[in-house]
Design a protein around this nucleic acid. Structure first.
Length: 549
RNA sequence: GGCCCGGUGGUCAAACGGUUAAGACACCGCCCUUUCACGGCGGUAAUACGGGUUCGAUUCCCGUCCGGGUCACCA
């Protein structure tokens, strides 16, 4: 068969040669050991948290070796593609601080010398290489229809043979040039398949950067290279793009492991040096005792938007994801409490081999720690940004006096053992409601064992004694001095020794004042709160409380 | 079903031929304390099962079971 003739018949419009592309995509000039990674999503729906995870790994691997991390859009499936898919991906990533060195940028632009970074714009590149393969007799057109394929499959299943298009079942392999010409003339659609040189009985092995050595049978399927529409399949596009773009490490979900022999074969027939593979385990979810991948239908936490709308800071999500990805991260963090996460020496080897269950408790814990280290101004900024988008009323209230709001986040912050009340920005409202008159709801939740008269007496006396200029010690001494005349013990220990001789202790007196001013039994440091509230509001609330009794 | 990968407390995970089998989260208790937190101390809880190999197996080998992935003109 004259393969050159066949190639021109099938792809008449392709005039460039692989050499043209080889010179258009020169080897990258990077320092020794630099790693080139990429995140290559298809714009088929919302951004999954797994995408953040995978890109974080890619970015970290590249950054730690002064390499390159790029973003390539794999839009070869027009049926599943959604509008704004690319924007969603880029925005979603950048919301977590992930911006690619090359490829699509948050501003909508495209950066880098190895583009285009969108596969739909690379059609003729793929076709050029397919044509080359046809010329070498390594690829051929296949005119089989769907029902025909189904019939073959049925037969194979019946005979307990491996299903698929291969060997003797690959009937279009043996078409003569004349038959092909005839089919083309009749306008029959075709796909281009690889004439697989693989042998099912031979084995191929490769070393996965995460999972170690993996051995599998060679691929003997004549996989589709070019679909009817002339667009390549994932497999083929992967081989071409990652070669041309100089990817050194392909980081992807481990659902791809089983097609890696096919990919290795593709690199081989194309004469390309294959990249290293790092197959990462997916984040799982517990489901009826079993494990399954985080699902977008069932699990809100699968969507990147979830973290955004709940208000988990991007730093916390990254921190959590790193905890999952590198088992030694927590130890490192303990030893480097204030260090930027970028300094963490990331390695593939430490990555978990099997899928970790998503642990919301752990995220919350990590997030509380992360937020507890933020300064008050930054907390305010974050809460404000969050509220602006998700709770406008709250936003209007807190932004009226930025300084005031920021200072309320300063309570017990900045010291050695900061409070950890807030795990996500949506917690902020509940945390600080009583600081704002619009959000403050009086709630007379006084301890039940105290009589109304006693409560009233405490409040009445306190209104007289209250001095807003008191420092913390004086403030508390003041409360303490109220105790005895009112029948309360100024000392908790003394109270515990003979509870029957007191109405309560200084803690109860504090609680009464606390409830009257904040509507709560539990709050952060009351003195700080009253300081912030100011004399007028404190007295107002105290007197209101007295009047309600 | 074929082919891969995996199985240490509820979860995430160390230990890679010899440990009383770490640590973190969650849970429980105690201490600190004017409340709540924070912090400190302590506790419950694990090597899937069965065979080997070995003086000795969480660790190596085999089998069973269980879980996950994959078998498209989807990625």
């Amino acid at each position: 068969m004259d393969y050159n003739k066949l190639a021109d018949l099938l792809l008449p419009n392709i005039t460039k040669t692989p050499d043209d592309y080889a010179s258009a995509y020169p080897a990258r000039e990077l320092k020794e050991g630099a790693v080139v990674t990429r995140f290559a999503p298809s714009p088929t729906g919302f951004l999954h948290i797994g995408a953040i995870y995978a890109s974080m790994v890619g970015q970290r691997a590249a950054k730690s070796t002064e390499g390159v991390f790029f973003l390539r859009i794999e839009d070869t499936d027009k049926l599943r593609e959604i509008d704004d898919g690319v924007t969603e991906i880029v925005k979603g990533l950048s919301a977590f601080g992930i911006v690619a060195d090359e490829g699509f940028q948050p501003d909508g632009g495209e950066k880098g010398n190895y583009g285009p970074y969108k596969q739909s714009e690379r059609a003729e590149i793929y076709q050029c290489y397919v044509k080359e393969l046809i010329k070498k007799g390594l690829a051929y057109p296949c005119f089989c229809e769907e029902d025909e394929m189904a019939r073959i499959r049925e037969q194979q299943e019946k005979n307990k043979q491996t299903t698929g298009y291969y060997g003797e079942f690959a009937k279009c392999r043996n078409l003569s040039l004349e038959e092909i010409e005839q089919n083309i003339k009749e306008g029959k659609p075709f796909v281009v398949r690889l004439k697989s040189p693989g042998d099912e009985n031979k084995r191929i092995s490769f070393v996965d950067a995460i999972k170690g050595k993996i051995e599998m049978p060679e691929n003997n399927q004549d996989i589709v290279l070019l679909k009817r529409d002339g667009i390549p399949t994932y497999h083929f596009a992967h081989a071409i793009d990652d070669h041309l773009m100089g990817t050194t490490h392909v980081i992807r979900g481990d659902e791809w492991i089983s097609s890696t022999p096919t990919h290795l074969q593709l690199f081989w027939v194309l004469g390309f040096k294959p990249p290293k593979y790092a197959h990462i385990a997916p984040i799982m979810k517990e489901d009826n005792g079993g494990k399954r991948k985080l699902s977008k239908r069932k699990d809100p936490e699968a969507a990147v938007m979830f973290y955004h709308s709940e208000g988990y800071p991007k730093e916390a999500v990254m921190e959590y994801l790193t905890t999952i990805s590198n088992s030694n991260f927590e130890d490192w963090r303990k030893a480097n409490k204030f260090e930027s996460i970028d300094k963490f020496p990331f390695t593939f080897k430490k990555m978990s081999v099997s899928g970790a269950l998503f642990d919301m408790n752990k995220l919350i814990d990590v997030s509380k720690n992360v937020i507890s280290l933020f300064d008050a101004d930054y907390v305010y900024e974050c809460v404000s940004n969050w509220a602006k988008q998700y709770d406008e009323d709250f936003y209007n209230i807190i932004s009226r006096d930025a300084e005031y709001t920021a200072s309320l986040f300063q309570i017990d912050r900045g010291g050695k053992n900061p409070r950890k009340d807030i795990a996500k920005w949506s917690d902020a409202k509940a945390y600080c409601e009583f600081f704002f008159d619009e959000l403050f709801t009086p709630n007379d939740c006084y301890p039940e064992q105290l009589s109304k008269e006693d409560i009233k007496a405490v409040l009445t006396e306190y209104v007289k004694a209250y001095n807003e200029d008191d420092d913390k010690d004086a403030w508390f001494a003041n409360i303490r001095s109220l105790c005895e005349p009112l029948g309360f013990s100024p000392d908790v220990k003394a109270y515990k020794q003979s509870p029957e001789s007191f109405k309560g202790h200084v803690g109860d007196v504090s609680t009464i004042i606390r409830v009257a001013t904040t509507g709560r039994v539990n709050t952060p440091d009351l003195w700080s709160i009253m300081k912030l509230l100011g004399k007028q509001r404190v007295l107002q609330r105290l007197n209101d409380a007295i009047n309600r009794i």
